[in-house]
Design a protein around this nucleic acid. Structure first.
Length: 455
RNA sequence: GAGGGCGUAGCUCAGUAGGUUAGAGCGACAGUUUGUGGCACUGUAGGCCGUGGGUUCGAGACCCAUCGUUCUCCCCA
């Protein structure tokens, strides 16, 4: 028997970690609910065809596929072999795999909307907090199983949705105490830039290249643009575009000048201005930052896009989202617009851990340990303990009669703040001693006074 | 998909230019006279040195392979 181990990129979460994670989940969930979003859960696995082709070529490779059962069935062996040959040739076949683990929460949601759009009360606002799986190489802040917390609105073109979603971002991170910047851009502006430089079909090439600006620097970006077939003139325009700097208003002014007269650009700029003006006088506005280099990988975005970064920590984005005008189109239901955001809990956790932002109260487990000092003594203790439990005070009775030292140590390890001691003397007198294990202070009480003790 | 680092006790790691029975700290367990802890002291247990091959009189150390893990690039949360 070899040592047990965990699949790459997955983790066990022990008590302290779970409590901290739940604190994040709870915060996000409460804010979602507070903004009128309703919960949804979907299966861990989807039909492979639901997912394939939705995340681009790179994304398709990272989808965890589930091997069909019964491939070794003698009657089907020939079929299985043929199917395997097809896979080796890079072709898809249902004969080997027809299900896959969900890669994100947005596409399963889109599938859900497409299946139920007749029944849904539009605009439909749902939130979803579930794990997703990606066959990626794990590294810092990157796992093969991780949670996403999504909130999406479908069935509405109103920019008021974007306004609310920005508010949700700012509120959650304020409550968690994480100092963040919410970067915003519009896909329309990127599209307009492409129209200016080489045509709409160059949009992907351009966005992929400029998205790397802060990582590789201007020269490398220009190099890549050149490789992707842009001429010197076009690259010059993009350089000007990338050199836009200053406050949000200053940036927008420069952009207007650069892309003057382009209708797509005007529309995109209007979106950003709408969002900024709406939040001009709130705490949300202080975090919003127009960033025209922001591109976002997923190509279904069409309007405003968001990305959240933590200010004091070196870490990839801890949230992202944007508007997509035709998400369910690929499921045969056209013209359902939507906009959504996502929180990356695992990265938020890492950021908060690094900055020591978790409040101490998160770690409250057992409140009172009842000492076990003998058969009759522990029986009395048990009865009293049940009374406390009914008051929702978490208690434990030590599992066996043991030396004081041992019982104290157990309490220490579990950081239990109180002990209740009932020995032979107390048993006779129907009394007990409450000991504060932090201060060492002891309070003798009659049994019937225990319930009114302020733990 | 490409490229680095690291695998020695439950945990964190030492292990010098290859040389006897592989070490420390923490943790665990037991005790320091019988019912008040966190400290201290003493003792005990616990290692196919990731796995398989090779070089050598001799390998935890060197070489190759393999598995695991971690980090970077690509891409992403």
């Amino acid at each position: 028997m070899s040592k047990p181990s965990l699949p790459q990129g997955t983790r066990d979460f022990s008590a302290t970690v779970v409590r901290k994670r739940n604190y994040i989940f709870q915060t996000i969930r409460n804010v979602f609910e507070n903004y009128g979003f309703q919960p949804l859960e979907t299966p861990a696995m989807e039909n492979l065809e639901t997912l394939m082709g939705k995340y681009g070529d790179e994304g398709d490779k990272l989808i965890f596929k589930i091997l069909n059962n019964g491939l070794d069935n003698p009657a089907k062996q020939e079929q299985s072999k043929l199917a395997f040959e097809k896979i080796l040739d890079g072709k898809n076949t249902k004969d080997l795999t027809e299900r896959a683990l969900r890669y994100d929460l947005t596409i399963p949601f889109a599938r859900y909307v497409a299946m139920n759009h007749g029944q849904l009360n539009m605009p439909f606002k749902r939130y979803q907090i579930q794990p997703v799986w990606r066959a990626d190489r794990p590294q810092k802040g990157r796992y093969r199983e991780f949670y996403q917390c999504d909130a999406d609105v479908v069935g509405s073109y109103s920019l008021l949705n974007e306004v609310e979603l920005a508010n949700i971002y700012a509120t959650v991170f304020k409550q968690l105490g994480v100092d963040t910047v919410i970067k915003i851009n519009s896909r329309k502006i990127l599209a307009a830039l492409a129209e200016f430089c080489g045509g709409a079909n160059k949009m992907v090439d351009i966005t992929v290249a400029i998205d790397k600006l802060d990582k590789v620097g201007l020269d490398k970006v220009k190099e890549e643009l050149s490789l992707r077939g842009l001429n010197a003139n076009q690259i010059q325009t993009i350089e000007t575009y990338l050199s836009i700097e200053g406050s949000n208003t200053e940036k927008l002014a420069q952009l207007k000048q650069l892309l003057a007269g382009n209708e797509t650009a005007i529309a995109g700029i209007a979106e950003i201005e709408y969002l900024l003006n709406y939040h001009a006088n709130s705490f949300v506005g202080q975090q919003l930052q127009a960033d025209f280099t922001l591109a976002r990988g997923l190509n279904y975005y069409t309007g405003l896009i968001f990305e959240v970064k933590a200010n004091q920590v070196q870490m990839g984005s801890i949230g992202g989202g944007g508007r997509y005008d035709d998400l369910t189109g690929s499921f045969g239901v056209p013209n359902v617009p939507g906009v959504g955001i996502s929180f990356g809990v695992d990265r938020i956790y890492d950021v908060m851990e690094e900055l020591a932002l978790f409040p101490a109260e998160v770690q409250t487990g057992t409140k009172v340990l009842f000492f076990n000092l003998g058969e009759a003594e522990s029986k009395a203790a048990f009865g009293l303990m049940q009374q406390l439990r009914e008051q929702n005070i978490a208690c434990e009775l030590f599992h066996e009669n043991a030396k004081f030292e041992k019982q104290f140590k157990y309490a220490d390890k579990k950081q239990i703040p109180y002990a209740v001691i009932i020995g032979s003397k107390e048993l006779l007198e129907n009394t007990l001693v409450v000991k504060n294990l932090v201060t060492g202070e002891q309070t003798p009480l009659a049994n019937n006074e225990l319930l009114s003790f302020n733990f």
